[in-house]
Write a protein that binds this DNA or RNA. Structure first.
Length: 669
RNA sequence: GCGCCCGUAGCUCAGCUGGAUAGAGCAGCGGACUUCUAAUCCGCAGGUCGCAGGUUCGAGUCCUGCCGGGCGUGCCA
């Protein structure tokens, strides 16, 4: 698809693609795979080296046994001779060992931007020529259990990826694979049967169900602490003490290397022991706190082995016990409503919400099929798939006959293939489940899903300021709603300082967008695969790579139009021109052109932080432009109009970029 | 024990199939509001990219070993 520009010439926003296309032609006869070499055109790091640099002459010189600069010379001659080169790019310069430095013509940049200016839908960005069908599996909380920071990261990353892929022209099906069939329902059912407050249930079912879950869970945890965790910990400590004593009394061998190793082992053992003792102290404190609560301890005494009892309720649910199925059907809507509140707040939607329960009746079939294919076999009473390269088997059915999430995940792949036949399925799930997904994908390939791209889009842990997984002071998971509330509340104190916000209503609306935006942007701007430290102060800072700064940048650009009483639409006509005489104008224009490159990178690696980094760069280029180039007070009307067009494009690119991240902007702040 | 991931400025983090002089924000120092939003901007300083080898014209990036850390590792998800 092509877009029309003012001169009647068809120009895509993507100058890099155009350059690569020309390099492929120029490389004809010189290389076996011109496309791969043409991929080696990258943005230059330093403006002295032009806008882009082609690095293909060096490897090619090596392969052909010729000096790279000679190859580069040949390429440059061919490029320059090709029709239309002079309107695209300056004559390339050859530098260093054989770099080819490329500098786009200002007129060409301007023409592309004029195309973008007129395109109110897509900013001149061309949809991919070969759209793919993606299924995106993200968020996936356990209903009835409170969501935590990990779910937010999955939700926010998955949502951003789905928006970007869609914008690029792919078909995307989003599916929230919620946990709605597991142990937590057994707990709620048990809680309902023994502890329900019928009035509270009638008045606020969600709150009451949540209370029941927490209560049963708390008692169960306490009993497990006493019966299992406490003795297990004591045994571990004893083992470790013995080991440490052995290590400490072992005589030196005389070999420095061995002694060093032994010393290291001893220090590690000391560290492990200290950790275990700390854990023990925490456990004892928890047990003591529970016992200090008279009501809880009497409940625990009255309901021994509550965990097993809850599991029994779960099992009855799974075997279609009419009462429990009835309760499940009755409670599920309230649980869904609860998580929906969070999605509403985040403004995240899904095409489908097919939870574990949806696949319930397919699980037996999955195991049977695996057995028939000879992939699954019985081991220690369980049905296992043994995979090459993995010590642990992929267990698809427990010895008690129950199915696991491995089974459900296989059934889900099967269903999605039957129903949607996607090219790719992406699972946005934290990195701790990487082994599970490796095994799942390996099993799926053995079943025969060879052409399907299965990707675990893993992400790192959200840490507290102490460097440990983000928890409340008491050690429990941080409630998601509370997290959002706090961010919005803190954003509110920022908004209160504003000189341009007039009413409390407006301040509240801005605070909501800044607060929610801050949380999302923090999750998205960090490299997906790394852990990162959660900090309200950092995510709400007005300087640096934050949502608040980006939103402020948008508001600042837009204020120019407000101040000047100018409707940007009047500047977007076919006769529009953009002049790039000032270096700051040109730098901003080049950055605007690169939006499409940033999106392509996001889609290639499923990494939203490439987009946040781009938007931050763009905001920086704009700040430099804003500093150096008067807009409303430009020397002449033509310059003013040209600069207003750059402002318009900047605002729209920032807004579009943020929208693709699921972040809303404000008119002023 | 085995497997996966990580180690970049005082702190928090970027760094595009290996590219030229490794970047940003915070904190520190110094500047810029009678001038389009100063909730901002500009400048300075700050680095053995954990260590040691190797591959390469070229390594933060690839390989090997070591040091340090996180996570996972047969019936939770």
């Amino acid at each position: 698809m092509r877009h029309r520009s003012s001169g009647g010439i068809f120009l895509s926003m993507n100058a890099l693609v155009e350059l690569r296309r020309r390099f492929v032609v120029a490389l004809e006869g010189l290389a076996d795979e011109p496309a791969a070499l043409a991929e080696m055109i990258l943005p230059s790091q330093d403006p002295r080296f032009g806008d882009y640099q082609a690095n293909c002459a060096m490897p090619l010189g090596k392969k052909l046994g010729k000096p790279p600069r000679e190859i580069a010379t040949t390429l440059v001659e061919r490029l320059v001779a090709a029709p239309g080169w002079e309107s695209l790019c300056d004559p390339p310069e050859i530098a260093g060992p054989g770099f080819i430095n490329l500098r786009l013509k200002d007129d060409g940049i301007a023409a592309r931007l004029v195309t973008a200016l007129a395109d109110t839908e897509r900013l001149g960005i061309v949809p991919v020529s070969a759209p793919r069908k993606y299924v995106l599996d993200y968020s996936s909380p356990n209903v009835a259990k409170p969501m935590h920071v990990g779910h937010i990261r999955s939700t926010v990353i998955g949502d951003a990826l789905s928006r970007v892929l869609r914008f690029l022209g792919h078909q995307v099906i989003t599916d929230n694979h919620i946990g709605d069939w597991g142990t937590q329902f057994g707990m709620i059912i048990y809680g309902y049967k023994h502890f329900v407050d019928t009035e509270a249930l009638a008045a606020a079912s969600v709150a009451e169900l949540s209370r029941l879950y927490k209560l049963v869970n708390q008692i169960g945890e306490h009993q497990a602490n006493l019966a299992e965790k406490r003795p297990a910990l004591a045994e571990k400590i004893a083992t470790q003490e013995t080991r440490l004593a052995e290590l400490a009394t072992a005589p030196p061998t005389g070999d420095p290397k061995q002694d060093k190793q032994a010393d290291k082992k001893r220090r590690q053992a000391e560290g492990t022991l200290a950790d275990l003792r700390r854990e023990q102290a925490e456990l004892e404190a928890k047990i003591a706190a529970f016992l200090a609560d008279a009501r809880l301890s009497s409940l625990a005494a009255a309901h021994p082995a509550i965990g097993a009892a809850a599991l029994a309720e779960t099992a009855k649910l799974h075997t279609s016990d009419p009462e429990n199925v009835g309760l499940w059907k009755r409670f599920l809507p309230a649980c869904l409503e609860e998580i929906q509140q969070t999605y509403d707040r985040l403004r995240v939607t899904f095409d489908h919400t097919l939870g574990e329960s949806f696949y319930h009746d397919r699980l037996a079939g999955v195991v049977e099929a695996l057995q028939k294919k000879g992939l699954a076999r019985e081991s220690d009473g369980a049905q296992c798939v043994f995979l090459e390269g993995y010590e642990a088997p992929f267990i698809v059915q427990k010895k008690d006959g129950a199915y696991l999430y491995a089974t459900t995940d296989l059934a889900t792949i099967q269903y999605r293939m039957e129903e949607w036949a996607p090219d790719a399925v992406l699972y946005v799930v934290d990195h701790r489940q990487s082994l599970h997904f490796e095994q799942l994908f390996a099993t799926a390939r053995q079943i025969g899903y060879d052409d399907l791209e299965l990707q675990h889009i893993s992400f790192g842990t959200v840490l507290g300021e102490d460097g440990k997984p983000y928890k409340t002071r008491s050690g429990s998971a941080v409630g998601l709603m509370g997290l959002l509330d706090e961010a919005v509340e803190r954003a509110g104190t920022l908004a209160a300082k504003s000189s341009v916000l007039e009413t409390d209503t407006e301040r509240a609306a801005v605070a909501e967008r800044i607060g929610i935006g801050a949380i999302k942007y923090a999750d998205l701007s960090h490299n997906r695969t790394s852990d990162y430290v959660f900090s309200y102060d950092k995510m709400l800072a007005m300087q640096g790579n934050t949502a608040a700064y980006m939103q402020y940048s948008v508001a600042r650009v837009k204020s120019i139009f407000g101040r000047g009483g100018i409707d940007p639409e009047t500047l977007r006509g076919d006769d529009a021109t953009i002049a790039l005489s000032n270096p700051a104008e040109r730098a901003l224009a080049m950055e605007l052109l690169r939006f499409t490159e940033a999106l392509a990178r996001v889609a290639a690696e499923y990494k939203p932080n490439y987009l946040t980094a781009y938007l931050f760069d763009l905001a920086q280029r704009f700040a430099e432009f804003f500093e150096q180039c008067p807009v409303l007070k430009a020397d002449d009307d033509a310059t003013k109009a040209s600069r207003l067009r750059l402002c318009d494009l900047t605002a729209r690119t920032l807004e579009q970029g943020l929208a693709l991240l699921g972040i809303r902007t404000v008119e002023r702040m």
